[in-house]
Write a protein that binds this DNA or RNA. Structure first.
Lengths: 120, 120
DNA sequence: AGGTTAATCAACCACTCGGTTGAACAACCG
DNA sequence: CGGTTGTTCAACCGAGTGGTTGATTAACCT
């Protein structure tokens, strides 16, 4: 469902230039030309980058005469952190459980095989 | 510096299959064949996916006879959350500041132009 | 040793991606 | 109105990606 969205967000941030743009937008809105200035690529390339970020829902754009100021949408970042944190926590918990098992094994060695979760 | 690493991690998680693999590994280590089972792609394709995750530092592999069990490395996820949280927080703070400015403007309308951060 | 199982390597294909150049809108300025 | 500025569209290119099939390595089992 939001699988597609998540893919787009991760994919968008996989590019260093795009991450840089996000970082700059975090300090304030900016136009395409302003955003393009620091890089030695064409403004069209940057425009494409911004499009990608927009499609991912990371930036929104308003209109000011010919200019199209870009604005960072922070909520989507939450979506990512939620995804990441979930599995980081699971892995951590599992690690802690395993740790406990090892301690128990150290106490009373030969017992039940504890856990054997197949992944089928 | 860790820019390259960050790109690899985001890029690795941009693929739904790879995110799924990470999710499954969060519940316990697994071999390539076990991980490949649920998908209708070849085991070679899954092997490649795991390679990408390994290069990103997201999984490590040990050896058990012919098998090479995959293990999720949670620390790298921290790297990502730190990056994300940093800019999310910046954007949030800026938003809050802007909010304050708007409130001040509502109080005493015609005053100083407050802030005008150009992004050059 | 011979055979089976687990995983990877190698070559290839369709497709996407980041970049380019050149043209086209779109809205301002004089 | 004509010209300039800001941005996008269109077509193209080289490199990378996810997938395939086929062969190969590595370690197990009799």
């Amino acid at each position: 469902m939001s699988d597609d969205r998540l893919s787009r967000v991760f994919s968008a941030l996989a590019d260093p230039t795009r991450r840089d743009i996000v970082a700059r937008l975090a300090t304030g809105d900016a136009t395409v030309n302003e955003l393009a200035a620091p890089y030695d690529v064409t403004v069209q390339a940057v425009s494409k980058h911004i499009r990608v970020l927009e499609d991912a829902g990371l930036v929104s754009r308003s209109r000011d005469a010919q200019r199209r100021p870009c604005h960072l949408e922070g909520e989507v970042l939450d979506l990512m952190t939620r995804w990441i944190e979930r599995y980081r926590r699971e892995a951590e918990d599992r690690f802690r459980r395993l740790d406990t098992v090892l301690e128990e094994m150290a106490d009373g060695p030969a017992e039940g095989p504890a856990e054997k979760e197949a992944a089928s």
